[in-house]
């Protein structure tokens, strides 16, 4: 296991983080949630940028606070905020990275920058938000890391650039079986087509962990009237939300309801709908 987060706690005045999660080798794990749900705080905790009030984080099987320089070379990071100084150029960043990482491939970095349209001799402050996002990704991918920790890497990118970045991530995973990615995004469609499993975080707590394929194939939203709801088998309902017409119910056994209750409206689950129901709906 590359990453194990065991019951970590971090208290702020108006926010408490309290979660556990895991990332296995060979997998892309997504962390999804609303703004302020705790995604970036979780990433900061993993990267030892904040101090925990409780719990434990193991990275490569070691306490995350005790990683050596060699261990840290095995991680590629994108933070939603934070990069090299805006006064530097990508060429200068490459020179710095070349001195910091043994496996940094400077020629490959230059070629990728050129391919992605990132000007090597321009100061970062002159870059558009999208261009800055591309540079961050290219930096994270530049040194053959075993594990990528990417907080909102596609923020600020247009549809085409997002596609390019997601393809880069797929290529990265195809190169070596043992690699893994932990990625957060508020754009669920990015994660839908990329992640093997998803963690959903809300108010600092993990509210759902599920295989992406299972969410897309077996989760669903039932739209039922009051009378139908009373007769409904509730064993497979995860969340229920009161609506003007009756109830919206989130299930992880859509097929069961389609077969046994042919009269009710059953919609295929999308990640957005699942998030909405998990957050707004109540328990059954």
């Amino acid at each position: 296991m590359l990453l194990e987060i065991k019951d970590i706690k971090k208290q702020y005045k108006k926010f408490n983080l309290h979660c556990s999660m895991e990332v296995m080798e060979g997998r892309i794990t997504g962390l999804i949630g609303q703004n302020g749900a705790g995604k970036s705080t979780t990433f900061k905790a993993i990267l030892n940028l904040i101090h925990l009030d409780g719990g434990e984080i193991l990275l490569f099987g070691k306490d995350h606070r005790k990683l050596t320089t060699q261990d840290r070379e095995k991680i590629g990071v994108v933070l939603s905020e934070g990069n090299f100084s805006e006064r530097m150029t990508p060429r200068e960043c490459a020179q710095v990275l070349n001195s910091l990482y043994q496996k940094f491939d400077i020629q490959n970095f230059y070629e990728r920058c050129e391919k992605m349209g990132v000007a090597l001799n321009k100061q970062i402050k002159e870059f558009s938000t999208g261009m800055q996002a591309k540079l961050k990704i290219l930096i994270a991918l530049s040194h053959q890391a075993d594990f990528l920790i990417l907080d909102e890497p596609t923020a600020g990118l247009d549809v085409v650039a997002r596609g390019e970045v997601l393809n880069l991530l797929r290529e990265y995973m195809e190169q070596e079986e043992e690699r893994a990615i932990l990625i957060s995004s508020h754009i669920s469609s990015d994660l839908e087509g990329l992640c093997d499993d998803l963690y959903m975080i809300h108010q600092g707590k993990i509210v759902l962990h599920e295989e992406t394929d299972r969410i897309l194939s077996e989760y669903g939203v039932l739209k039922v009237e009051e009378k139908q709801y009373q007769r409904l088998e509730k064993k497979y309902l995860i969340r229920v939300k009161k609506e003007s017409f009756g109830y919206c119910c989130l299930t992880n056994e859509r097929q069961f309801y389609m077969e046994n209750y042919p009269g009710i409206v059953t919609e295929k689950g999308s990640i957005d709908e699942v998030i909405e129901m998990m957050i707004q709906g109540g328990t059954v």
């Binding site: 030892n48 940028l49 840290r72 990071v77 933070l79 905020e81 934070g82 090299f84 100084s85 910091l100």
Partner: peptide, 18 residues
């Protein structure tokens, strides 16, 4: 000051040095 701008320190401390 330049390292600190736009949360740059957070990124710097993810790089391989203590």
């Amino acid at each position: 000051a330049l390292d600190e701008q736009k949360n740059g320190n957070a990124f710097l401390f993810t790089l391989p040095f203590s």
